[in-house]
Simulated scan of single mutants.
Amino acid sequence: MFSSQGPSLRELATQALSSVEHGYDLLAPKFDHTPFRTPDSLLAASADALRPLGPFGPGLDVCCGTGAGMRMLEPLCRGRVAGVDFSAGMLAQARGAHPEAAWVRADVRALPFAEAFDLAVSFGSLGHFLPAERPALFAGVYRALRPGGLFAFPIGAPQPITSGWYWALLGFDMAMRVRNAVWHPPFVMYYLTCPLHAVRDDLTAAGFRVTTAPLAALGQREDGSPQFGLVLARRPERPD
């Protein structure tokens, strides 16, 4: 799973026993050599789904990490592009890879923007927020978008209970809950706490109009449904 340039087991253990912020600061120099980086196939499929909805003006990558999302965000946007994250280490890597973009260090649960962007995207970040924290995250993205702006992020289909992946993800979440119960500071990263129906409800409560688009290029499940979909949350031109 890890290349020779990736973190060692000892480095991963140190990161896992840190806070989320400090853990990612430690992991940042080697993050792009781990399976945690957003795959190029997911970025490409998301860009393909968004392209017919554009072109867009300014764009924002929420929880940008080392900046992988900029590869798809920049070609979609005619205005300035920016990334926001709370890890200084991850932002340093992003800035080195994409010096032309703006990089902002902030807690995304209190985004420091108001009606500044036409498009916001996020990749692989929802598991870092407890369900009770999602309303603040989504409210901040809503404020950051101009009227008519779009918030988009991919989400995987739920794994069937007969799947090995389901039990692997459940086991990871249970291990993380035990870790956070006995060790502080907590490291919040869960895979099964953000099902589509709950995310849709929170987005709707924040004021978005929510649809989804299949990412067919990423494959289908046995029942023919897509493995991944792109959530499209639109800020209305006028409040409902």
Rank of each mutant, 00 (worst) to 15 (best):
A120P: 10
R105M: 14
L111C: 10
R95C: 13
F123K: 04
P75Y: 05
P131N: 09
V62S: 10
L119W: 02
D85T: 03
A120Y: 02
S87F: 07
F86I: 11
A92D: 12
L50R: 00
G54H: 06
L73G: 01
V104N: 03
S41K: 14
C63D: 08
R51W: 13
A110H: 13
W103M: 08
F36Y: 13
V108F: 03
R51D: 13
A116T: 09
R51N: 10
A114Y: 14
V84W: 05
E74D: 15
R71V: 11
C63Y: 06
P99E: 08
T34N: 01
G124Q: 07
F117N: 02
L76C: 05
C64Y: 01
C63N: 06
S125C: 15
A45G: 05
K30L: 11
L91Q: 00
P75W: 03
V121Y: 04
D32C: 06
D48L: 14
H128W: 11
A45V: 08
H98M: 03
D85Y: 00
L119D: 01
F86Y: 10
D118L: 07
L111H: 02
A120T: 03
A88Q: 13
F129V: 03
T34V: 08
A82L: 07
S87D: 09
V62Y: 04
V104A: 07
W103F: 09
G79R: 07
P58G: 10
A94G: 06
G65D: 06
H33G: 12
L126H: 01
R105P: 04
E100Q: 15
E100H: 13
A102P: 05
F138R: 00
S125K: 03
L53Q: 09
P39G: 11
A44Y: 07
T34Y: 01
L43G: 02
F129M: 05
A120W: 04
